[in-house]
């Protein structure tokens, strides 16, 4: 039998990981959790109930693009929260994060990949809710397909960036998964997914501007390009905060022996 040493000839020093680990982490997130019935349920059931309530008190007869995106946004938010908790609690339970902690790239590419995976997975809410809304109410003649699609995709990633901070809490604090009960409602209310931002109470309106989802929804409701830029910038800012939080987690694990296991 040959040795376990690599055929070193012609092999370069392994490159430092980063983007490839992140993409692989994203793909594996989908491999492991894409068929989760809970995630599909979160992505479709709750938003459609919300859409039904909103539609019943609205004057529009058919489903508009902002109702479709907002409903999908509720589903995305719910499914991303559920998936982040399932995914990261799974990592803790399986004690797989120690391998990442000891690797050259550390935890960041793995955790960001998982978050991006939850965003991609939550996209099922976009066509899923539209189909149900179309069946229930029909599609409005002025339905803006471009804003529905672009807004929906942006909404998924901006939501994942905000919920990423919950990911830090799940990894850092035991039993923090319980926080999710209130988080869905809180972020949903603040991000003007269902009602326009102008309908929110004064102080809440200002707070809503901090969340990228509010700007996505403002754009879907007919806002200018500036709203998209704000949404993208805030998504980057929240992603940066998640990176800093995960780096802090790494430091705590190495300095204070913070357990990365359940």
């Amino acid at each position: 039998m040959s040795g376990l040493t690599t055929d070193r000839t012609g092999l370069e020093q392994p490159r430092l990981p980063g983007a490839s680990t992140l993409l692989r982490s994203l793909a594996d997130q989908l491999r492991m959790h894409a068929s989760s019935p809970m995630a599909v349920f979160s992505a479709l059931a709750m938003p459609c109930v919300f859409a039904f309530v909103v539609h019943s008190s609205a004057s529009d007869r058919n489903a508009t693009s902002d109702l479709a995106v907002g409903s999908a946004g509720v589903g995305m938010l719910d499914s991303i929260i559920v998936l982040v908790v399932i995914s990261l609690l799974g990592e803790k339970q399986w004690k797989t994060l120690y391998a990442a902690l000891g690797s050259p790239g550390g935890l960041v590419p793995v955790v960001l990949g998982r978050l991006a995976g939850t965003a991609v997975q939550s996209l099922t809410a976009l066509p899923g809710t539209l189909v149900i809304l179309a069946l229930l109410f029909g599609v409005d003649g002025g339905f803006d397909w471009a804003r529905w699609l672009a807004g929906g995709v942006l909404l998924a990633f901006s939501t994942a960036s905000v919920v990423g901070l919950l990911g830090f809490a799940v990894l850092r604090y035991p039993y923090s998964a319980g926080m999710t009960n209130g988080l869905t409602g809180l972020v949903m209310a603040l991000s003007a997914l269902i009602v326009p931002q102008s309908a929110l109470p004064g102080p809440v309106q200002k707070l809503a501007l901090v969340l990228p989802q509010s700007h996505v929804m403002a754009w879907v409701r007919g806002g200018g390009t500036a709203e998209v830029l704000w949404a993208a910038a805030l998504t980057v800012v929240f992603s940066g905060l998640v990176v800093l939080a995960v780096r802090r987690l790494e430091n705590m694990a190495r300095r204070q022996a913070l357990p990365l296991e359940a």
């Binding site: 392994p14 490159r15 430092l16 990981p17 490839s20 680990t21 692989r24 982490s25 594996d28 491999r31 492991m32 339970q93 399986w94 004690k95 797989t96 120690y98 391998a99 990442a100 690797s103 050259p104 790239g105 590419p109 793995v110 296991e261």
Partner: peptide
């Protein structure tokens, strides 16, 4: 670190190694 944990039970052996290999810059 051995033991029953430290691997992804829902991934195959090959997928596990591919993921961990990427952490070390292999691709």
């Amino acid at each position: 670190l051995g033991g029953d944990t430290g691997l992804y039970p829902r991934l195959t052996a090959q997928q596990n190694l591919s993921f961990f290999g990427m952490m070390y810059g292999l691709r």
